[in-house]
């Protein structure tokens, strides 16, 4: 069985290291990008099965990423947004742009794994 490809867009190295480790352990093929520029470059070449992205990222925010995937790439792949606590307005905007789910910081890797699996099972 082929592993599902997951793009993790997170500029916080600390969080990214932990999530990267746990998602790989969870059976996913994880590609990590630390900024929006790398994310865009990745998406120009290939499309993952799911994207997990922070809202606040340098060069290309999570919002711009959603808009780019939905409008320019015309892809409906699941996108899970990582948001800081108290950023409810951004979360609402993310949903309006087409995000499928969100998870608040501090992120529980176990919770994220459940959410990722749930989104992938919907396809």
């Amino acid at each position: 069985m082929t592993k599902k490809r997951l793009l993790l867009a997170e500029d916080d190295e600390l969080l990214a290291s932990l999530l990267n480790f746990r998602l790989k352990k969870g059976g996913y093929e994880v590609s990590h990008s630390a900024n929006g520029k790398e994310v865009k470059e990745y998406l120009e070449q290939q499309m993952p099965d799911i994207i997990v992205s922070d809202i606040m990222m340098p060069y290309f925010s999570g919002m711009e990423l959603i808009a780019y995937v939905r409008k320019e790439l015309k892809s409906q792949i699941p996108i899970i947004i990582i948001s800081s606590a108290g950023n409810e307005e951004n979360v609402l905007n993310a949903f309006e742009l087409g995000a499928n789910d969100f998870i608040s910081k501090p992120v529980s890797p176990s919770e994220l794994l459940v959410r990722v699996a749930r989104e992938l099972n919907k396809i």
């Binding site: 500029d11 916080d12 600390l14 969080l15 606040m56 501090p106 992120v107």
Partner: peptide, 11 residues
């Protein structure tokens, strides 16, 4: 401050 916040919460 935002950049360091998630790490502080995590630890």
């Amino acid at each position: 401050a935002h950049k360091v916040k998630a790490g502080l919460a995590m630890m």
